[in-house]
Design a binder for these strands. Structure first.
Length: 394
DNA sequence: GAGTTTGAAACT
DNA sequence: CAGTTTCAAACTC
């Protein structure tokens, strides 16, 4: 790796590709006033870290000076050898200066300069947050199995919040009726995606309404500059990378759901509510979640505790009831490592294995391969847990 | 599938 | 910035 760069949030196993058919979240850490995303390459300029987001901002400023009218609005007719600035599309880089639209859905801003090229030309109909794209990503579109979700050093961090329950291989269609799919009410729009196979009415979140869409993006960004950034980002509890955790960046404001229904963005993303939230009667604190998960895997303990009047063992115990308790380090329990994320990642690995060999090998061999994959997952979970525990001890 | 509830986004 | 309205998803029946 170029010594003038450093990778964010990852050590040896670099998760840098976003592959078609796989859902993957970009996580980010704050660097000064800026953010960098998992897999981002940080340039060092004059001893200062320059994130891709910063590079992109600088790049857009530069482009604004060159073509100020094309940032938002109708894309200009292209001259030969000119790339469409201001429009959105993923273009291949077969030869510099030429454009090839991959599909009507794959659009993103692309730079002219060589050094601003994306490292990987990712195929997706979503926007992704690189120096070359218009805005950030919240969710990928095609939830599918991702082995990398399990092989990352930070198990669970790269997990798609809702891949399994929703049909695999298809993103969720929106049903907008009044927003023209040009407001953040529309999930597709909010995710930086074009509507595709949706049930929306009078949809303007498409190529036919590109100018309008661009204006809407601009308006959304003016209201909230972070509008298209991931809602669930990565924060650091401590200084070490082991203290990274997924959290809702803005926090929820739930009043009636106790943050225990999917109305709650934290709950839906399977992250605990934090002090960033302004929710009332929250039962989705980290303690609640740990307790709930512990009971899920050790029901006998919970039953025992219930019979002995230990309220803290209830999945939905009040925080105050646990305040005075001297809870053992949750990392000393096996269930601590079997988080929702890990289980989902494992499931996705198994599904991936099944899909890979489906119709290619006899069913008994298929079963064997899936079991083998399961074994591999378990080994990895154990290994990661072991490493994590050792690092805690150390 | 229709109606209700919910909370984020948008608006005032 | 707080209160209200709009909106679409989640949920219930």
């Amino acid at each position: 790796m170029d010594e003038n760069y450093q990778m964010v949030g990852q050590e040896e196993e670099v998760l840098e590709e976003e592959i078609v058919g796989e859902e993957q979240y970009e996580e980010y850490v704050e660097i000064g006033d800026d953010e960098a995303y998992t897999g981002d390459r940080l340039a060092l300029e004059d001893g200062r870290i320059v994130t891709p987001a910063r590079q992109y901002a600088q790049y857009m400023q530069q482009m604004q000076r060159v073509q100020p009218q094309t940032r938002y609005g109708q894309a200009p007719r292209l001259q030969q050898g000119q790339r469409p600035m201001g429009s959105q599309g993923v273009y291949s880089y077969e030869s510099p200066g030429t454009q090839r639209q991959l599909s009507p859905q794959r659009y993103a801003y692309m730079p002219e300069s060589e050094e601003m090229k994306p490292q990987v030309l990712r195929q997706s109909n979503q926007m992704f947050y690189t120096p070359n794209t218009s805005f950030g990503v919240r969710k990928a579109i095609t939830p599918g199995p991702s082995r990398e979700a399990l092989t990352t050093p930070y198990m669970g961090m790269v997990k798609p919040p809702k891949p399994i329950k929703k049909s695999i291989g298809k993103r969720k269609p929106c049903n907008c009726t009044k927003s023209l799919c040009l407001k953040l009410y529309c999930e597709c729009f909010a995710n930086g995606e074009f509507c595709m196979d949706c049930n929306c009415k009078d949809c303007h979140n498409n190529l036919e309404h590109e100018a309008e869409r661009s204006r809407a993006i601009k308006a959304s960004l003016e209201r909230n500059p972070h509008a298209f950034k991931p809602k669930i980002g990565v924060s650091t509890k401590g200084k070490s990378t082991a203290d990274f955790e997924r959290l809702h960046q803005k926090g929820c404001h739930c009043k009636k759901s106790n943050c225990l229904k999917n109305y709650c963005e934290c709950y839906e993303a399977k992250v605990p509510c934090t002090d960033r939230c302004k929710c009332t009667s929250c039962r989705n604190t980290e303690t609640d979640r740990n307790t709930k998960f512990r009971d899920k895997f050790t029901p006998s303990l919970s039953q025992l505790a219930t019979t002995t009047g230990d309220r803290a063992s209830s999945p939905f115990s009040d925080e105050e009831s646990e305040a005075g308790q001297e809870a053992p380090d949750p990392k000393s329990f096996p269930w601590y490592y079997l988080t929702d994320d890990v289980i989902e990642a494992t499931t996705m690995c198994l599904v991936a294995q099944a899909q890979e060999f489906e119709n290619k090998v006899p069913s008994e061999d298929l079963e064997k391969s899936i079991l083998k994959e399961f074994s591999r997952c378990l080994e990895q979970i154990i290994e990661s847990a072991s490493m994590s525990q050792n690092s805690v001890v150390a």
